[in-house]
Nucleic acid binder design. Structure first.
Lengths: 188, 188
DNA sequence: GTCTATATACGGATAGAC
DNA sequence: GTCTATCCGTATATAGAC
């Protein structure tokens, strides 16, 4: 380890993350990433020995970033309802990317499941980090044992919206469903 | 055309369909399909010239099958609520496949979107056939202009359930959400 | 129609010069 | 550390024998 401070490594991970999201994991080659970063294929292998290794770095970075963001929200906002609304609003603020490429987390998990890739179990940590945070917010909102189940429900709702908005390339549908989702939140 | 009666061709399409579902489109090679059908690669190319051609056949067959099934349901059942319940029950009856490989339609659309594949527009007909049928059922149920929007909502709900059940390989969650979905249907 | 080569391209991964 | 050159496997697709 001790790689965290390596700027080039971070640039590679950022490029890989974007390309995996836009083109898919399998469909993205080392050449694609190397070209995007501006280094040669050979140099690339100095930083990452295998494709799985970079996938692992991409997932790890995303999990960390998600946890960081949610922790920040918990610090900056006191109302759990407001926090969840912020969470739902990600759909709207990323509507262009979502209609073009789907949800970066959902689509990666879907692909890894097809590849029977062992790293699916690491990838779904990107989901469970959200699930656990949402569960906490729902508990603060007064929900009891059912909080976790409701959190999973919300997770699924956002995934469904992303999948359909992507399949139909339909931003209007996405915004409609976000409105619907906020009404649902208000009814809790 | 005139290919419809060709038994071997149908077997190839059925194999391709299954393999695309289980392994993904890109990750499935001609060798995989040929081996599964029990023919040589060379023979394969006699029936389908390109990979896109077989993808097209797979999608066409699925669209036809979906329309056929829904038309059958409309014939055999009179209560629109019962029909929609039947639709929701697909999730339960396919729970093993869904937790292992996701929704065959949603995951294919997700993959084609990543590949910027032109056939995404054909693939989402698998969805719109369902949307249109659901819209009709909801109209019979007494809904007005909002019927189509509610149909899209239901579509998204099922997709979200499939994506999350797949990512977590969680059948229990799937069944929970199906129950939830039926409560929602009852409240319409 | 079905088969066995085979052409060609590209993928991941390595070796070794600088 | 970064590069070029290369190995090797596999993929799509074609040619041509039977």
């Amino acid at each position: 380890m001790g790689h965290k401070g390596d700027a080039l490594r971070q640039r590679i991970v950022a490029s890989a993350d974007q390309l995996f999201y836009q083109q898919g994991y399998e469909n993205t080659s080392f050449s694609d990433i190397a070209e995007d970063v501006g280094i040669s294929r050979g140099n690339f292998y100095y930083h990452f020995k295998t494709k799985d290794e970079i996938l692992n770095a991409v997932i790890d970075t995303r999990v960390t970033d998600i946890e960081q963001m949610l922790k920040e929200w918990s610090k900056q906002y006191t109302d759990p309802r407001e926090r969840i609304e912020l969470y739902i609003d990600i759909l709207t603020s990323h509507q262009d990317n979502i209609t073009s490429h789907g949800c970066p987390i959902g689509s990666l998990c879907t692909e890894l499941a097809k590849l029977s890739h062992v790293m699916l179990h690491d990838a779904n940590k990107m989901f469970s980090a959200q699930r656990d945070w949402l569960t906490m917010q729902l508990r603060e909102l007064g929900l009891g044992k059912e909080a976790r189940q409701v959190a999973m429900h919300l997770l699924a709702r956002t995934q469904g919206i992303a999948t359909i908005a992507n399949a139909f390339e339909d931003k209007t549908f996405l915004r409609q469903e976000v409105k619907h989702l906020k009404q649902w939140l208000g009814s809790l």
